[in-house]
Write a protein that binds this DNA or RNA. Structure first.
Lengths: 203, 203
DNA sequence: TATAAAACTGACTAATAGTCACTTTTTGAC
DNA sequence: GTCAAAAAGTGACTATTAGTCAGTTTTATA
C-alpha cells in the first residue's frame, strides 16, 4: 500500500507551501520584521502547525536557503557553455552566479543569512543538511571542471583540484562585497573573477 | 574651558565600557541568546542608560564590529614584511588576516554578523560609519600595495589597482568557507590566497 | 545658590517565539 | 461500516525581552 509514500509526498508538499508563505513574508518585510503569525496567516495554517513542520524560525530560514541554493544551481548549470574548456566552464559558473544574484536579490540575501541561522536549528536539521548537500554539490562541480581543465590543458598542472574548488567557490561567494564600497558591485565581482581565472590559466 | 572636551572623552569612555560588557556577554552566550538586561548588568548600568549610548541592540553589535576591524588592522599591519615587494605585502596581509581569525574567533564571528545588523541601526549610525571607514582604510591599504607591486615589478602591469583592491579584499574575506566543507579551513584559505597571488604575479 | 542640561533609573508596555491541551481528520484493522 | 489509534491541526496561553518614559540624580555654569 502506497499510503506511507503518499503521506511523505504530502508532507513535503506542505513544507513547500509553508516555505512559499515564509518567502512571501520574509522577502517583503525582512526576516527580523516578520513574525511566525504572519507566516502562519500567509500559509493559511495555525501557528502550531508551522511547528509541526519546522523546528523554529531559524529552520524556516534555512529551508529558504536550501531553495535558494537549488535555484542557484540551475543558474550555474544553465550558464555552462557547451563544448568548451574546463577553465571556460568555471568562468561560466561565475557568470551564472552573478546572474542569479542580480535576478534574485532576495534569494541571494537569504543565502547570506545562512551563518546567522544555521546554528539555531540544530545539527540534525533535515533542512540544514539539505543545504549542506547542495553546497557540496556545487563544490563538486567546480572540482570536476578544474580536473577537466587540467586534462584539456586550459588550467595549470600545478593546481590541486580539491583545494582549488574550495578556494574558487569561496572566492566567488566572498567577492561580492559585504561592505558597500563606492564601486559597482557587479563590476567588482567580474574583476575578482578575472583575477581568479588568471591565477588558474596556463601561461 | 575644556569641559566639553572632557565630556566628549568621558562619553567615548562610557561607550567603551558598555562595549566591553557587550563583548563579555555576547561572546560567552551568543548574540541571540544575550539580552540587553544582561549587558546592562555587566556594564553596571541600567538598561535605560544603554539606550543613551546605543540606539539599539544592533548598533551595539556594530560597535563590536568596529572594534573587531580595528584589531584586525593591527594584525594586518603587524604581518607586513619590511622592505619587500608590493606582492609580498599583500601576501603578508593575507597571513595577518588568517592569524587574526585564528587568535580571535569571537571577533571574527562578530564581523560576520555585520550584514545582519547593519540594516538595523540606520545609515546615520556613528558606529556603522566608523566600521565602514575602517573597511575603506583596509581597502586603501591593499590598493596602495597593488600600486607598489606594479611599480616594483612584482605585479602585472595590466592589473587595475582600485578594482583589484576590492576584488582581493573581498576574496580574502570570502575565502574562509561559510559552509563547513570537509576540509581544514586554514588550509583552504591559504590555498585561495595562493591562487590570488598567482593571478597577480608577473610571469 | 539657582537653573538648565545631561546622565541615569527601573517599572512598564508591546510584541512575539514557542508550547500544549484539546479538536478534527485520516488510516487501517476488523 | 465501525472503531481505536495516529497524525494533523488549532489558538489561547506563557515566558521572555527590546525598547520607552516619567521621574530622579548629578553635573555644569551663570
Amino acid at each position: 500500500m502506497g499510503t506511507l509514500e503518499r503521506k511523505a509526498r504530502e508532507r513535503v508538499s506542505r513544507e513547500n507551501l509553508i516555505l512559499d508563505a515564509a518567502e512571501e513574508v520574509f522577502f517583503s518585510h525582512g526576516f527580523d520584521q516578520s513574525t511566525m503569525d504572519d507566516v502562519a496567516k500567509a500559509a493559511e495554517l495555525s501557528k502550531g502547525s508551522l511547528y509541526n513542520y519546522f523546528k523554529n524560525k531559524n529552520e524556516l530560514c534555512i529551508g529558504i536557503v536550501g531553495r535558494s541554493l537549488r535555484l542557484m544551481i540551475q543558474y550555474l548549470e544553465k550558464a555552462l557553455p557547451e563544448n568548451c574548456s574546463g577553465l571556460n566552464k568555471i568562468h561560466g559558473m561565475a557568470k551564472g552566479f552573478l546572474l542569479f544574484k542580480q535576478e534574485n536579490p532576495e534569494y541571494y540575501c537569504a543565502l547570506q543569512n545562512y551563518k546567522h541561522h544555521s546554528g539555531g536549528c540544530g545539527a540534525d536539521s533535515k533542512f540544514l543538511n539539505l543545504s549542506i548537500d547542495e553546497n557540496c554539490y556545487i563544490n563538486g562541480l567546480v572540482e570536476k571542471f578544474v580536473k577537466e581543465g587540467i586534462s584539456d590543458g586550459s588550467i595549470k598542472k600545478s593546481i590541486i583540484p580539491e583545494k582549488a574548488a574550495n578556494a574558487i567557490w569561496g572566492e566567488f561567494n566572498g567577492a561580492i562585497p559585504g561592505f558597500d564600497l563606492n564601486t559597482n558591485s557587479a563590476e567588482a565581482y567580474e574583476y575578482a573573477v578575472e583575477l581568479i581565472i588568471n591565477g588558474l590559466k596556463k601561461a
